[in-house]
Design a protein around this nucleic acid. Structure first.
Length: 571
RNA sequence: GCCCCCGUAGCUCAGUAGGAUAGAGCGUCGGUUUCCUAAACCGUGCGUCGCAGGUUCGAAUCCUGUCGGGGGUACCA
């Protein structure tokens, strides 16, 4: 019904009247003009001065709000609610599961895992803000034939390659060598399958090696999550489902859904134009699909979720379609009551590849960019930038520890830049990882938002007065200030949109707009060419502007948190 | 072959529950600091919105077809 005018200066809302053209047998501009005129006439008859006015242009009725009232309404709300601004209770009593990161054990934490980790972490926070009971799950890839491969490689070559130090890098070396040698020696793959079969049966030696790989990997992952500031509520893995799979397979079989094809146990999905879901290989070992199906059943029993989200790359789309379909078929066959069905509640949240140049990444080929190296390099660059831009920060930091720990700030900035690179593009699109852009720190970037935040903080310090909602809002009626205020007024809706579309980048985009609009106010010049300062002699004006500054800082800090970036107070 | 995603400025991307002259950042060239952090701000854009049809008062957005790129397509995950 209503929408946003193309140009913000045209008003706060717009009502297109085109659809009424036919009914009223008149041209849209005429209709708009007449309606707009009538509204304004009515408004002018009111005893109180009106807070809105309308104007018609080319078939649109544009509605303008009174600037002072808009400022009062939005700022008093932000100042009153603080961090809670934009939060909401729409998720009350609903549990939402978000599975993300889900890295594979015995592999390095590559840049390829960045997107799921960052996206999921952000979705967890966004749904939390909307009042949902969120459970962030890291479902480790710690089971499967790949461990057979690892075990075989370890047993064969760990001595000769001197790779038994218990470092993930060593495990990777072995993994890569396995794939190299398997190119020419297919018997290795058979050995790997055998080894995994033994592992699934609980063979002592196999289990011991598996645990070793898992422990080594987890230690490394926790360090990375710490640096990224990523949190989980539950860390589990495919292995934990080892005894959950057979019962589900039995249910499917009893329901008459399974069949044997080419020696494997499958659920035929021919009717849905999908390949069959493989539950068991011909050697009896389970597969990816088996584990996700069993996992979903287990999660349903445990949480009775409103939604269960899988933040996994788009290449897995068919896999999830298969898994969800099998569940739906099972519920149908067992004729479960609607209240006990999870069909439709499990959703795959797909995202595109991280591309380097025109290449995508493959661990198997051994071509992987280790995330930690990227983070280290970004932090290093941030350190150099601080030395260049704000050397005082380093001096003060060495003198008084309370003034700010600059190595920490450098890490916040560097890591922030990397996280931002994943959050500034729509999910489904492949994202290009271009070093120069990720580390540019200028323009649309994480550091740009952080810099704006640091500057806002500094202004509040400089002002040195208590910020209250009790101010002269007419001081904020200027066009630039109004733009900032409107963007902040839209912020709560943006959070809801981000949740609805599972698109955190909507928040990124809004924050960039807010920061940019504020920076415009910040560097605005008067007619004489002098900067129109926020903190000035004029007490009345300063108080009003600092209230704006404080509100902007609250919103940017909150948005950065939702995205998973830190908001340093100085930089 | 079949299924899914993507195709917008030199580059990276917004804009897609249809709407007003298609927007940002980077890059280019130029400007702004005796003044609150210049990691900023201002100016500078001759785009077949891949192409062709269709629906509509109106299409980058919806439908059909087509071309190009990526992914998936049974014992890897």
């Amino acid at each position: 019904m209503s929408e946003k005018p193309k140009d913000p200066s045209m008003g706060r809302f717009a009502l297109p009247v085109f659809r009424y053209s036919k009914i009223l047998a008149d041209k849209p501009p005429q209709i708009a003009a007449a309606v707009s005129q009538r509204i304004n006439d009515l408004l002018s008859e009111l005893s109180e001065p009106s807070l809105i006015s309308t104007e018609s242009i080319a078939g649109f009725i544009n509605v303008r709000t009174d600037p002072t009232a808009q400022a009062r309404d939005t700022l008093s709300r932000i100042l009153g609610q603080g961090d809670a601004y934009g939060s909401d209770n729409s998720g009350h009593d609903q549990t939402i599961l978000v599975e993300y990161s889900s890295v594979n054990i015995a592999r390095p934490f590559g840049v390829g895992h960045l997107r799921t980790t960052i996206l999921g972490n952000s979705l967890r926070r966004i749904f939390g803000k909307l009042g949902y009971n969120v459970v962030g799950i890291n479902f480790l890839g710690d089971w499967g034939t790949q461990f057979g491969k690892m075990i075989v490689a370890y047993q064969k070559w760990s001595k000769e390659e001197e790779t038994d130090s218990g470092d993930v890098k060593d495990l990777v070396k072995l993994y890569v060598r396995f794939h190299d040698e398997a190119e020419t020696d297919d018997s290795l793959n058979d050995q790997a399958r055998e080894a995994f079969q033994l592992l699934e049966k609980g063979d002592d030696e196999m289990v011991r090696l598996w645990k070793q790989f898992r422990d080594v990997s987890l230690k490394e992952f926790h360090r990375i999550y710490e640096i990224l500031g990523v949190e989980f509520d539950v860390i589990t893995g495919e292995a934990a489902l080892n005894d959950k799979m057979q019962p589900v397979i039995d249910r499917l079989t009893r329901a008459g859904l399974t069949s044997i094809s080419e020696g494997a146990l499958i659920v035929d999905l021919h009717d849905d134009q999908l390949p069959p879901a493989l539950l068991k290989k011909k050697d009896g070992a389970t597969l990816y699909a088996t584990r996700d199906i069993a996992g979903l059943v287990q999660r349903w029993e445990k949480y009775h979720f409103a939604q269960s989200l899988y933040v996994v790359g788009s290449s897995q789309a068919d896999h999830f379609k298969q898994a969800f379909k099998v569940i739906a078929m099972l519920e149908e066959a067992e004729d479960l009551p609607e209240s006990n069905r999870m069909s439709g509640k499990a959703k795959h949240i797909p995202f595109g590849w991280v591309k380097f140049g025109d290449k995508t990444l493959s661990t198997r080929a051994g071509k992987i960019i280790v995330l930690e190296d990227v983070l280290t390099q970004a932090t290093q660059l941030a350190t150099e930038k601080i030395a260049e831009k704000n050397p005082e920060l380093i001096e003060n930091s060495s003198q008084k520890s309370g003034l700010g720990d600059y190595p920490k700030i450098a890490e916040d900035i560097g890591v922030g830049a990397v996280i931002f690179s994943q959050m500034s593009v729509r999910r489904q699109k492949d994202v290009s990882f271009i070093w120069e852009e990720v580390l540019s720190f200028e323009g649309e970037s994480g550091p740009y938002l952080q810099y704006t935040h640091a500057r806002l903080t500094s202004l509040i310090e400089k002002g040195g007065i208590e910020i209250t909602p009790d101010i002269d809002y007419s001081q904020l009626a200027g066009e630039e200030e109004q733009r900032v205020i409107e963007l902040m007024a839209d912020y709560p809706q943006v959070i809801k949109d981000a949740a609805r579309d599972y698109e955190p980048y909507l928040i990124t985009a809004q924050l960039l707009k807010i920061a940019s609009a504020f920076n415009k106010v910040y560097q605005r010049k008067d007619k004489a060419g002098r900067i129109d300062k926020i903190v000035s002699e004029d007490q009345n004006r300063t108080r009003a502007r600092l209230a704006l500054v404080s509100s902007v800082r609250t919103v940017i800090a909150d948005g950065l948190y939702l995205l998973g970036l830190k908001a340093p107070e100085k930089m």
